[in-house]
Design a protein around this nucleic acid. Sequence first.
DNA 1: CGACCGGTTGAAGTATATCAAGTACGGTGG
DNA 2: CCACCGTACTTGATATACTTCAACCGGTCG
Lengths: 263, 263
Amino acid sequence: MNASSSTVAPPRAQQHPGSLALRPSDGARELIQILDADTASATAQVLWRLGIPRRRVKGLAALFNEGDSVESLYVVQVGTFKLLKTAEDGYEQVLGFCSRGDVLGGDGLWSHRHPTAAVALEDSSVFALPLNSLQRLTDELPTFDRALQGALSRQLAAAAEVAEVMAAVSAEVRLARFLVQRSSRMVELGESPRHLLLRMSRRDIASALGVAHETVSRSFGILAEWGYLRVDNRNIEILDLEGIRACSRSTRGLLEPRAHARS
Amino acid sequence: MNASSSTVAPPRAQQHPGSLALRPSDGARELIQILDADTASATAQVLWRLGIPRRRVKGLAALFNEGDSVESLYVVQVGTFKLLKTAEDGYEQVLGFCSRGDVLGGDGLWSHRHPTAAVALEDSSVFALPLNSLQRLTDELPTFDRALQGALSRQLAAAAEVAEVMAAVSAEVRLARFLVQRSSRMVELGESPRHLLLRMSRRDIASALGVAHETVSRSFGILAEWGYLRVDNRNIEILDLEGIRACSRSTRGLLEPRAHARS
DNA sequence: CGACCGGTTGAAGTATATCAAGTACGGTGG
DNA sequence: CCACCGTACTTGATATACTTCAACCGGTCG
């Protein structure tokens, strides 16, 4: 829908406001409309036009770490991030993945400390909204707060998905749910729901799913064997979207005798 | 920190501002304390004028259901709620539990549809903030938005805890982490961290932990056997808080040969 | 009282964690 | 250019912990 520029647009190019002087307050008005928009990806579009400062992050580099002081909120312009917590022994618990339009750092807003870290999975770029500029926006345009609340609200709803994934009984269902979520996200971004290019490692997926990474590997094999997928390393093609959706609906409740004939 | 009344205090007690008549809206003061302690005095005046309505919910009754239109945000005054999603086959996936001070319904703010349901686990009472009054609050009281953002931000951070629980390797560690979280919450509410009165059923816990409810039962037994707990139905006494904390730190990474001699 | 619900405990099958090889890829250095 | 190494991924074998089915207990409620 809004995928006018699916690739990484060059910074502030020809469409700079020009004579139409966009002061922060003017930009704020438009920003709010976008933050209120139904699709998160739409936010990125307008932030770009507003000339909000950006920050580039190399692949595998951290945008911020656990415990860092919160200086800005971020909105992903392009790229992919993983959110994680690191245990004392070094184990990385992945809490989710973020792509274009997602807000990063909202969970540290109240304590001014990031409770989670955000690591880029590829060369990425984010819009940075310094806290003091947030305050300015709030002062000048009260409705900005509502827009920000909307963004936080979305993240909150997204958090439930993590639980859905990890609560599944079998590893295949967890993976199926995960893939369905990624697929839905693709649609929101205006891409095909059938073609997934996973930016994260199997180990990251395993952590997010709450299983061993070997199990992820095997589950990919099983879903492929059932004819739902075609797996080529991190390149996933969904052959039977409805089938995998049905699979993802298996719950721990009343166990319907699964219809997947295991060959 | 804001635990002026550590127990489930009857609303209007002796701490009212002098001779001022206490109308039902005196909950405003309490609400402010809950949402944002620092600016309580200033904001209380305005909230008072606005008259924050309360809503009572019987035990096991729903405050709102999945798919309901969002008419209000709620802040728990007293009681406990579970958040859940219901699958097509009727299985209830519990996403978390809320007690005093938690905001309910924030995840539906942007779509104006509740993506999750909230069910009271006991007779409870919430402050209801109708969306239109929310706007009015924003207009008259800019700092209110910050308080609300803070609350949403906290909820977001809390969502990570769910993942932490369900990602654990063994059922005992999951339960240990869950109990540690509940214990920490007790401290925030000004109660003892050692005494937990769980308002939810074993089945609810099981759903939140991502295991079978029989396994929860057994895990309670095991933790008790290890000397960490004393279990009396839903009444849990933590005997070794440090021990159970240590147990909850076990990760799926490098497995230290666990120090729990299994009898 | 009998039915029902929540909780506990037991027994059996199975899925997954874990350990262990082995492969493929990309980068580095000879 | 090729040998080498590390990382990511896959696949196999075994032990174990969990799910599942089932029985049982103690409440509460009609």
